[in-house]
Design a protein around this nucleic acid. Structure first.
Lengths: 335, 335
DNA sequence: GTGAAAGCGCTAACAG
DNA sequence: CTGTTAGCGCTTTCAC
């Protein structure tokens, strides 16, 4: 691999001249520029990103702090990735995937700070240790999701309050009186994951507001769990006539349980989700759902960081309120 | 951020001594080691990964060459990511996500070579320009998938030949005589994506072997496309009694089309897939399927690269033959 | 067993 | 407008 020195020698100029023709940080005469460019071309020179990064103290790479890789990765997280990747691509940055290593509790969740210019966090907890640490290190970051203390932080999040209210309102309008909300897992709730906690609260608040009754259940992220949780709903004296589900991966289990119960969707029971259109269309019937814009959120979150890194000082806290798309899993409450 | 020089000064030793106590590459007396360790502790020193990489010429980071970010990312790819990430985590490597930038055809698909020690490729084409380039640069890599020319290459792949044959054999055993295969998109086929081309061939070969008739159709990666392709199957004179589908995201569309046709699964028509168990369980009824082990493949693929980077010279071409799991979408051919 | 110094490939003052 | 030189923070000869 040729270095900048090789180029300089071949073009008969100083290294700094090569460096500057490349960066444009100072005027270069036409003929010198030509010679340099030619030398670069002939040698197939490509600047060594590492050396440059060491000298400039900027890597032009950001990290995506991935939630810890426990037994099962919940796939929705993955959908954020493609959005983030799209953004780093557009901005010509690199993207490093990062996971909280379990074995080093001393430096919890901290990215090798010298490898990246900043990071995007996801699966934010209400009181997230990563956030505290990042702040105290004055480390640039942005979040997909948000916690309790948001002073001066930048993030994009789905407005779960809006989402749950919208679902409940919609179902109330269809005459449903008894609802059930199938949330994510207890573990996530107890971890204090923002959206899990907020959804839980918002659901009950919305119930009260519309004078409905309802129950909420936690549920693991797989079809089997969805099945069991749903079965349990029907053992009670007054079963719900409509369900709201947060997690795309349990939809199949829920529908199967409903089917096994001898009920039909949407004639006997309604099901609405808060999930990606893609997931909503994977089932039969397709699900009425708040269209969770994973990719957009990933893109926006990354942008929030990138703009900071490019020198902007910003303070953006964006709440997305995607529409409820009516598909075929919901209908009027049977009388 | 403290540097190695700070540590050296505080411990009253030379930089090289600090370096060596850390690397263990030469003997250090007990007391010196103690002083060094203490200084490190007190200063909260962490070696600068970049500087180290520049000096050693190893970054301990690998790249995952992501397929180009066209309009829609097909989500299955994402599932590989979590496997790869798991592996890099286990091996204590970093993971850089990389996408073919469209604008620079001169250095097609090539990762900033100095930022990573090697790369994992996915979505391998039969005659993949990336592979040729990597080979000619003697650049370490491993593949998830494989092409035509595999001399000396390392990869892991699903055995699509096995997969299609198994599906066809299973359906033949149930008495089905007319099958349809719903492959991925034409674009992918024309691009020469290994698994798309191989599946296509294997399906027809299997048909011949079992004396069945059948058709194959290409299909975009969304429910709507699945719906339309399936509808088209029923306009012909002799509709199939069993379908094989390769792409998880079209399952819903297919099932809806079947339903709209007034047919029931599995009584009137069987549907088997080649997709992840997770996806198979998302539908009602859950799909009989070859259990596509995305995560495992990602992990194995990464391992293949990692082992090379750790000095092993290996030549592994692994074909996975995951079992066909019978669920509820398949049954005997109606007479 | 330890220290001094060169060098990885680049950028950025500092001169001119 | 261009060249010289001193780092960026680490590893690794080469001496002792």
């Amino acid at each position: 691999m040729p270095t900048i020195a090789d180029v300089a020698k071949r073009a008969g100029v100083a290294q700094s001249t090569v460096s500057h023709t490349l960066s444009g940080k100072r005027p270069i005469s036409a003929d010198v520029r030509l010679r340099v460019l030619q030398a670069i071309e002939e040698l197939g020179y490509q600047p060594h990103a590492l050396a440059r990064a060491l000298a400039t103290r900027r890597t032009r790479t950001i990290a995506l702090m991935y939630p810890a890789l426990t037994s099962e990765i919940s796939e929705p997280h993955l959908e954020f990735v493609s959005g983030v990747l799209q953004a780093t691509n557009d901005w010509k940055y690199g993207l490093l995937l990062w996971t909280a290593p379990d074995e080093n509790p001393k430096v919890p969740y901290l990215v090798r700070p010298d490898l990246v210019d900043g990071s995007v966090m996801m699966e934010v907890r209400l009181d997230d240790p990563r956030v505290r640490r990042m702040k105290e290190l004055h480390y640039p970051f942005a979040m997909i999701g948000h916690g309790t203390e948001n002073e001066g932080l930048n993030f994009v999040d789905l407005d779960f309050d809006y989402a749950l209210h919208t679902c409940v309102e919609y179902l109330a309008g269809l005459g449903h009186k008894r609802l059930a909300f199938i949330n994510n897992s207890v573990e996530q709730y107890e971890l204090g994951l923002g959206y899990v906690v907020r959804s839980e609260g918002a659901f009950h608040q919305a119930l009260a507001q519309w004078g409905l009754v309802g129950t909420s259940s936690f549920c693991g992220s797989n079809a089997q769990a969805g099945y069991e949780v749903t079965r349990a709903l029907f053992t009670r004296d007054s079963a719900p006539t409509a369900l709201i589900v947060l997690n795309a991966w349990v939809g199949g289990g829920i529908m199967r349980a409903i089917h096994d119960q001898g009920l039909r969707i949407p004639q006997d029971i309604s099901l609405v989700g808060i999930l990606s259109p893609r997931a909503a269309e994977m089932t039969v019937p397709p699900l009425t759902a708040i269209d969770f814009p994973y990719k957009t959120m990933g893109y926006r979150g990354a942008e929030l960081l990138l703009r900071q890194l490019e020198g902007e000082t910003l303070s953006v806290q964006e709440f997305l309120k995607p529409p409820l798309t009516i598909r075929q899993s919901s209908g009027p409450c049977p009388s």
